[in-house]
Write a protein that binds this DNA or RNA. Structure first.
Length: 285
DNA sequence: ACTGGATCCTGACTGC
DNA sequence: TGCAGTCAGGATCCAG
């Protein structure tokens, strides 16, 4: 389940085999994806074009083409992008294959088909493809004042706020739990209850944890692999996620699991005390 | 306006 | 052994 660090690691791994290469042909499965495949735009702007750069936007992988269009891939939960020698037999759930002029083909494999393939045409508004995106956690705009402003007057659990792409991009279920644990904030705390100090901790720890996860090659819970098919190893450094009943590495209290917004959320009742009942300061409009 | 729940999907796992 | 049910979660839609 790729979040920001996994997507970043995949992007970096794609660069050596993609930048400067030309996509000579493309083959797609007829399986229905979350979003319909933009067949016309793919043939008009992507196939036959050279790849100028590979970059990450939120959890999207973006290939900048010399046509000034972008190929935009989202991995959803189980998506993978891997290279194979051209002509290798396709596997089940290979939904797209782009043949390159270096004898390789780039494949998009997605078991659950929650991922997407889109084209950002030249001149098109990026919001059409990316949607409404908040700042990247590594940008200076992502700071305590900004988060406090976003949270003011809101009763939404802080964990759900952190997972909202319109507030901040790239933080998913695993890292939200980890960031809040290190910050000593209970995930169920209404976002509007947090102090500026707590937001500052969350900002600092978000960057620390995401950076550390990138350095570890990401987190592999079940099926994530990078573009070379290698697993990450940050899962060995997770302190609470997936560790219900185990001792908290900081205070030794057993880690608890709750469901917030339909998502499994892990926390330590010792390090992250239950939220109090203070009234929320109402948002000014 | 805001929030929580349902939905999409397949495979791994559990319990009977 | 085989079947049914549950769970996993990113993004989006919808109802209250």
């Amino acid at each position: 389940m790729p979040e920001l660090p996994e997507v970043e690691v995949i992007c970096r791994g794609l660069v050596p085999n993609l930048v400067g290469r030309t996509i000579t042909a493309a083959i797609f499965s007829h399986q229905k994806m979350r979003l319909p495949l933009p067949a016309q735009q793919l043939s008009a702007w992507i196939t036959g074009r050279k790849i100028k750069a590979v970059r990450r936007v939120a959890k999207f992988i973006v290939l900048d083409m010399d046509s000034s269009a972008c190929l935009v891939v989202h991995l959803g939960m189980t998506g993978r992008l891997n290279f194979f020698p051209a002509g290798t037999a396709p596997a089940k759930h290979d939904h797209a294959r782009w043949l390159l002029d270096n004898g390789l083909e780039l494949r998009f494999h997605d078991t659950r088909r929650f991922g997407s393939i889109q084209v950002l045409a030249p001149g098109e508004n990026p919001a059409e493809v990316f949607g409404e995106l908040g700042p990247d956690p590594f940008r200076p705009e992502f700071n305590a004042d900004y988060l406090a402003g976003q949270a003011r007057g809101r009763a939404l659990p802080v964990k759900n706020l952190l997972m909202d792409n319109r507030v901040v991009t790239g933080i998913g279920n695993i890292y939200a739990s980890e960031i809040l644990h290190v910050s000593g904030v209970n995930p169920a705390t209404p976002a509007g209850h947090l102090s500026l100090q707590q937001w500052q901790k969350i900002v600092t720890n978000s960057r620390l944890i995401l950076k550390a996860a990138i350095a570890c090659g990401g987190t592999t819970i079940s099926d994530y692999v990078n573009s070379r098919g290698e697993k990450g190893y940050f899962q060995t450094r997770l302190q609470v996620y997936g560790r219900e009943g185990e001792a908290c590495p900081i205070c030794q209290k057993p880690i608890k699991k709750v469901r917030l917004g339909g998502r499994a959320s892990y926390y330590c009742p010792g390090c992250q005390p239950e939220p109090d009942e203070r009234k929320i300061v109402k948002k000014r409009r």
